[in-house]
Amino acid sequence: MTAQPLSESSKAVIDGWVKKFPKDHPRAALCGALKHVQEENGGHLTDDLMTSVANYLGLPPIEVFEVASFYDLCEFQPIGRYKLAVCTNVSCMLCGSTEIVEHLEKRLGIKMGETTPDGLFTLRDVECLAACINAPMLQLNDKELYEKLTIADVDALLDRLIDEAKTKE
């Protein structure tokens, strides 16, 4: 199988991860590698990319699929430019995450787990992200947290992201 080749920058990042671990255990770089190539690929992994990572680390591809498929952060389908991961676990639920979810679904016209037809937003209903004291909250593209959310905060965030997408086009 000819795999989608890794970019030079990906190789450099993976090399950095490999250096953190004993030299006969490059496999330990796998999570760091997958995280990076997923981000560089616009937020999701492909079979080809995972095969390339496997080849680069000297692993059978199946072992890379096995790890990737276990984890919540790995995406296997194209996702929106903005992934909004809303925590709905108990501390957030007690502080209004249900209303945040309802508002997001209504305003974006999609359900949790779906992507808007314009490819801009993906909604994810996720488990505790360790921000219980700032509930309710969401995480944008697996990075920044938006905490102590109100409906107005959500609207302001969506407006900003829509504007940002327009100016980048």
Binding site: V90, A131, C132
Partner: peptide, 10 residues
Amino acid sequence: ESEPGTCKDR
């Protein structure tokens, strides 16, 4: 740190 209700280590 992933135990619901816990957010000290972060």
